[in-house]
């Protein structure tokens, strides 16, 4: 059986084509045989953008910068390709390993927002402007007042866009992280409002996780437990990631229930879940021991023990 035939069976669009398209322009010898170029072999802005993002992902920031710059020049101003190229260029300037330039990056993002104030790429660019202020280079501390203002701007402009919702959870995390009960109380109110107004949001699990942190700061174990369970129920698991599971969250909920809320029924449910659902998890034996402990503590208390 010739190899090519076996590969046709093996996978449609496998390494033979897909991996070549994956290959970064700066590092690979395998160049695309039939890339999505314009007729005549001219590279389209769309192709340039795609290849520049591949370079970006491979850490080839020089090539990515060149690719996005070419795409910016090649695409008619204001078109989707043009905005995508500006956005990619901004990301590359901001996040390149050596010599990041947040000022140039901010210019790119601002231009996207100016050219298409309500568009999809504009929403992500607005979030990127806030992230520049928050995810600062090592050795510097974020200016939290400016960070919060920038996040609030995204939330205000794009309240129901994923970028706006992401900005909201980032914004609240800056308040929760102070561990100040006053800030926690304020964040809790905002988070509860978000949960009520965004019932279909994909960021509900993260919002509930922050509610649980607020409850921990405020010393409310019952609320913490309830929020943790809600966070679990809304949590998305990445099926392609073998490490993406709920084992740690099961353990956390069970121990909060046992040692903070004194709710052994809930504790039992989640310890048992860990034992049943995660046969390879290291904490499984500990969960078995915990189930025995719950029984013995209850038996002792029933007999009037302390």
């Amino acid at each position: 059986m010739p190899v090519r035939v076996s590969l046709a069976i093996l996978m449609a669009g496998g390494l033979a084509a897909g991996a070549v398209a994956d290959a970064p322009s700066a590092t690979t010898a395998s160049q695309p045989a039939a890339a999505p170029n314009a007729p005549g072999g001219q590279m389209t802005p769309s192709f340039l953008n795609g290849r520049a993002w591949e370079d970006f992902r491979a850490g080839e920031f020089g090539a990515a910068t060149r690719g996005f710059t070419e795409a910016v020049a090649a695409a008619p101003p204001g078109t989707s390709d043009h905005l995508q190229a500006l956005y990619g260029l901004g990301m590359t300037w901001n996040l390149r390993g050596l010599g990041p330039d947040p000022v140039l990056a901010a210019k790119c993002f601002t231009e996207v927002v100016t050219r298409s104030p309500t568009g999809d790429v504009a929403a992500w660019s607005q979030l990127a402007l806030a992230r520049i202020r928050h995810a600062v280079p090592v050795g510097t501390e974020p200016d939290y007042a400016a960070v919060r203002k920038a996040y609030q701007e995204v939330v205000t402009k794009f309240p129901f866009h994923p970028a706006g919702e992401e900005a909201f959870v980032y914004l609240q995390s800056t308040w929760v992280a102070t561990l100040d009960p006053k800030d926690a109380g304020q964040a809790l109110g905002a988070l509860e409002g978000f949960i009520k107004d965004h019932p279909g949001s994909k960021f509900l699990s993260a919002a509930w996780a922050l509610v649980a942190e607020c409850a921990a700061t405020l010393g409310r174990p019952d609320d913490r437990l309830k929020a943790k369970i809600a966070s679990l129920e809304g949590k998305e698991l990445d099926p392609t990631n073998p490490y993406s599971d709920n084992a740690a969250l099961y353990w956390e909920i069970a121990t909060i229930a046992e040692f903070e809320a004194g709710d052994f029924a809930v504790a039992r449910k989640y310890y048992k879940g860990l034992v049943d659902d995660y046969p390879q998890d290291q904490r499984r034996w500990g969960a078995r021991l915990a189930l025995e402990r719950l029984d013995s503590v209850e038996a002792r208390l029933r007999k009037g023990g302390k």
């Binding site: 980032y170 995390s173 102070t178 994909k202 960021f203 993260a206 998305e236 698991l237 990445d238 392609t240």
Partner: peptide
């Protein structure tokens, strides 16, 4: 599938570490 990956990593690696680091 990519958006699920993006959101779960955003929550796990970017949003909550701010708080866990503080604790």
């Amino acid at each position: 599938s990519l958006w699920i990956k993006y959101r779960s990593l955003t929550a796990m690696r970017q949003v909550l570490p701010e708080v866990t680091h503080a604790r």
